[in-house]
């Protein structure tokens, strides 16, 4: 049977396609697909995309949060500043990430302008992203976003807590908007599980920035050495940024290649 198999009604149909997965041979009568199957299909589709994505690691060090990505490019970044205390890191399709990055900056600035700068929080931003990504992933006629995000916030010095600072926050958002709160470190990208396992063994609290950066690059190198094509981790092939407690209002800082080389030497 030929013809356009895509239903034209605007309501969500009882039978659902995953049109992005259709091959020519599939063009037959619409068939029933269970919700579990739809979710699984979408997840498989995204996983194939993310599997190729290079990793981004966020980890807590003595003065804040360090963010490191495998990224040899000089002007397209995977880590960026969102607001005073908030940064965003992503693995996956740059174009899809870019739209969310700018939307995050915009919504944060609007909220901060309307209320107060400290009212803009990572939790709020995470929910915003989560709702958006969830809605896209659930839409029957749209392709889910092939990205994973880490929303990071450096804690506010607060006399009421024992440690003197509110703790740092790291939220990991999956393609379907489901998010989880991570402690101490978080990894996204194709080989995130392997890197997380390595960090579990090697991570210690209160690292200096140089030590934290060395830990991440060693972990990257271990993973790369194990992979088929040998790829060397140098200051030129990684992107490094941090949220630093010692900075003024804007805590985000991008480290130059020279600075990274100095820290690694």
């Amino acid at each position: 049977m030929t013809g356009n198999p895509i239903p034209t009604c605007n309501e969500t149909p009882a039978f659902v396609f995953a049109p992005w997965n259709l091959k020519d041979t599939d063009m037959s009568t619409p068939y029933y697909v269970s919700p579990e199957q739809i979710r699984q299909d979408k997840e498989d589709f995204v996983r194939r995309g993310i599997a190729q994505a290079k990793e981004v690691v966020v980890l807590e060090f003595r003065d804040g949060l360090l963010m490191v990505a495998e990224n040899p490019r000089k002007t397209t970044f995977k880590i960026s500043e969102i607001y005073d205390r908030i940064a965003l890191a992503a693995a996956g399709r740059i174009a899809e990430y870019e739209a969310l990055r700018v939307a995050g900056i915009r919504e944060s600035e609007i909220k901060g302008f309307r209320y107060y700068r400290e009212d803009v929080t990572a939790k709020w931003l995470t929910n915003l992203y989560s709702q958006h990504m969830g809605a896209v992933a659930q839409a029957w006629d749209a392709k889910p976003l092939e990205i994973e995000l880490l929303v990071c916030e450096i804690g506010i010095p607060d006399a009421s807590t024992h440690s003197g600072t509110q703790r740092n926050q790291i939220y990991h958002i999956a393609f379907d908007g489901i998010y989880s709160e991570e402690e101490k470190y978080a990894v996204i990208g194709g080989r995130a599980t392997t890197i997380t396992e390595l960090l579990e063994q090697r991570y210690t609290d209160g690292l200096e920035m140089a030590a934290a950066l060395q830990l991440v690059t060693e972990t990257f190198q271990t993973v790369e050495t194990d992979s088929e094509d040998d790829y060397e981790i140098t200051p030129e092939t990684i992107e490094v940024a941090c949220l630093e407690q010692t900075a003024e209002r804007r805590k985000f800082r991008r480290l130059s290649t020279d600075e990274v080389a100095r820290l690694l030497s």
Binding site: A99, L100, V102, A103, R106, E107, E109, I110, F113, R114, L128, Y129, Q131, H132, A135, V136
Partner: peptide, 24 residues
């Protein structure tokens, strides 16, 4: 969902005028 329509505008004032004129 997030409003992604404003992408490409680096002018915050334009965004406020369009979406939140009450703030100005």
């Amino acid at each position: 969902m997030l409003d992604l329509d404003d992408y490409g505008t680096s002018d915050f004032l334009q965004i406020l005028k369009r979406r939140h004129p009450e703030l100005l």
